[in-house]
């Protein structure tokens, strides 16, 4: 397990595209003190390494059914209504700062 320090936390935050104030990193570092102790509780379970990780509550063949990639007519939404949620748009497209000047 990677040792936790402020730089690691800053790295984790930047991967998620945000930052925090210095004192907020301090709070988080303190919180990690408790979380690390809680995580150690997982090591107390006997035979944990012998089991497979579980990703979903149960295995259901219907979850993995491959479906035809067809648009559902009743789900059609109004393009204008959707675009209004993008604050800046023009000619039916969302506008972003120029990539190439």
């Amino acid at each position: 397990m990677k040792e936790v320090n402020k730089d690691i936390l800053k790295d984790a935050a930047s991967r998620l595209l945000f930052d925090m104030k210095d004192e907020e990193y301090d709070t988080l570092l303190n919180e990690f003190g408790i979380i690390t102790k809680q995580l150690k509780l997982m090591d107390e379970i006997k035979g944990l390494n012998d089991v497979e990780p579980m990703s979903f509550p149960y295995v259901d063949e219907s979850f993995s059914l491959l479906r035809e990639d067809e648009p559902v007519k009743e789900d059609e939404v109004d393009k204008e209504e959707m675009l209004q949620n993008a604050k800046v748009y023009r000619d039916g497209q969302v506008k972003l700062p120029k990539v190439v000047n």
Binding site: A13, L17, F18, M20, E24, E31, I35
Partner: peptide
């Protein structure tokens, strides 16, 4: 950065870690 509160950021950082 402006939209998430501090608490939610802390949870996200834990997840990212």
């Amino acid at each position: 950065n402006e939209g998430f509160s501090e608490l939610i950021k802390r949870r996200f950082v834990l997840g990212s870690y």
